[in-house]
């Protein structure tokens, strides 16, 4: 099972680390929209070069970048071939460079932002929704809980698949997915109890 690149923050004190999280996130969104709007082969390539420069300056290891790009490689090659054939190579370059730029920017954002800061940013956004009955702290907690649950749920999936295999049931999706879902719900109940025990369900 591929492990998700979590907890891959790169400690550092570059300008990218020091940018306030909210502004950095807003910047990421705006940049993303801007990059998608770029036309032709050259501007997206330039954007990719700029994104790589930022990543390099922020001290993001090449390994983290590769980890983000690697899963896309096959897809990108197929898309590039298709686009070259149907609409010419400039479009292919545009699509590939745009996608890579977004991946590099997102990876850099993740690498330079501790989850705790991200949580605070989420809390600030959620605060706007407070009149609607939204509790910002709980939003932040749930957000972070989802991220940290991914490796746990991945393990549950691997374990149930292996168990199905051990019983010769690997060709039955039901034999894997039913215990996977049941164990996931049981895990969620245990997590809910643990949250309550830590007083996280109590009002301030």
């Amino acid at each position: 099972m591929r492990s998700l690149p979590l907890g891959l923050q790169v400690p550092g004190d570059t300008v990218w680390h020091r940018l306030p999280t909210g502004r950095k996130l807003l910047g990421l969104v705006l940049l993303g929209v801007g990059v998608v709007a770029l036309q032709g082969p050259w501007l997206p390539l330039l954007a990719l070069a700029a994104a790589l420069a930022v990543a390099l300056h922020a001290g993001v290891p090449a390994r983290s970048l590769a980890l983000g790009v690697r899963p896309l490689l096959v897809l990108l090659v197929v898309v590039a071939a298709l686009q070259t054939w149907q609409r010419g190579w400039p479009v292919a370059v545009e699509v590939v460079a745009t996608t890579l730029t977004l991946v590099v920017l997102a990876t850099t954002f993740t690498a330079t932002t501790p989850t705790d800061d991200l949580l605070d940013a989420v809390v600030r956004v959620a605060r706007v929704l407070r009149p609607l009955g939204v509790d910002p702290e709980r939003v932040a907690l749930t957000f972070s809980l989802a991220i940290s649950s991914i490796p746990v749920v991945t393990t549950l999936f691997t374990q149930t698949r292996e168990a199905a295999k051990a019983r010769g049931l690997e060709r039955s999706p039901r034999a894997t997915l039913t215990p996977f879902a049941v164990r996931t719900v049981a895990h969620a109940h245990a997590v809910g109890d643990a949250l309550a025990a830590r007083g996280l369900g109590d009002p301030d």
Binding site: R138, T142, L145, A146, S149, V152, V185, A188, G192, D193
Partner: peptide, 18 residues
């Protein structure tokens, strides 16, 4: 939402991810 509800929401977000 109780803490169990929050946990179910978070863990199922992770389930969809997996």
């Amino acid at each position: 939402l109780t803490t169990t509800d929050l946990a179910l929401v978070a863990v199922f977000a992770a389930l969809v991810a997996v």
